[in-house]
Design a protein around this nucleic acid. Sequence first.
DNA 1: TCCTTGCTTCGACGACTATCGAGACAGAGG
DNA 2: CCTCTGTCTCGATAGTCGTCGAAGCAAGGA
Lengths: 132, 132
Amino acid sequence: MSKQAPGVLSLDSGIECCSPLVAEPLSGSQAGELARVFKAMGDPVRLRLLSLIASHAGGEACVCDLTDVFDLSGPTISHHLKVLREAGLIAGERRGTWVYYRVLPDVLGQLADVLAPTSVRRQSTTKAKATQ
Amino acid sequence: MSKQAPGVLSLDSGIECCSPLVAEPLSGSQAGELARVFKAMGDPVRLRLLSLIASHAGGEACVCDLTDVFDLSGPTISHHLKVLREAGLIAGERRGTWVYYRVLPDVLGQLADVLAPTSVRRQSTTKAKATQ
DNA sequence: TCCTTGCTTCGACGACTATCGAGACAGAGG
DNA sequence: CCTCTGTCTCGATAGTCGTCGAAGCAAGGA
């Protein structure tokens, strides 16, 4: 149960495409929304979970695969998955005996755009090719 | 004092340009480095501070400007600035009576690239509007 | 020199978090 | 029906975090 809200990130609250951090001061609510997501990613275990899920073949991973990677109890992994779920980063679906998690589409891209809009990033990251 | 290390983020540990979260599982140390930065950004006050500094005219802001924005004590603002500093996101410099903070260059861009490499981002963001 | 202002450090306190073991729930298979 | 396996929830505990007031430094001006 809980809130596997659609687009939890903030699409609703106006962050989406045009509010890069560096262009203008974040509003209180924007900061609150974003902070919730970054806080969820502010743990090594959760970051690895996210990466494991995102990079897994087929775009989704079974909890059983994830548990083996860490020296942590099942409940702990389950807890971290719940945090990622409630932050709107992943979604889980039960199929038969196993539960599969996948990364929600676009969320990471939108976060990246808030940190540094695409155009800006192209020059600062790859300052050699002045495309675009 | 402290560790205003050069390139704290992780340039050293191999994250920099070619390890997007979604391409392959993060190593333990990569996750640790990244988590430190995301954890620093996982607080609304710190995100707004970061945004205020980044978007301020001249690329830097005096602490006195930042303090007025929040209903928080001076020591608390100072504490948050210290967290951002130790995460390698900002740097402070005293000039006369005032201390000015600025966002370290490229850090946000590199973070963005870890979340979603530039090329991928262009398409996923474009169709974000169609989703939901 | 002393005083004032700006910022940081220190010490403390309440709130939150990561982790665990025990137990509950959901399917699959006998 | 029962049992086994995979996952989640609950309750407890140790540790971390955000916040404050008090005190300390640093710089500029009487």
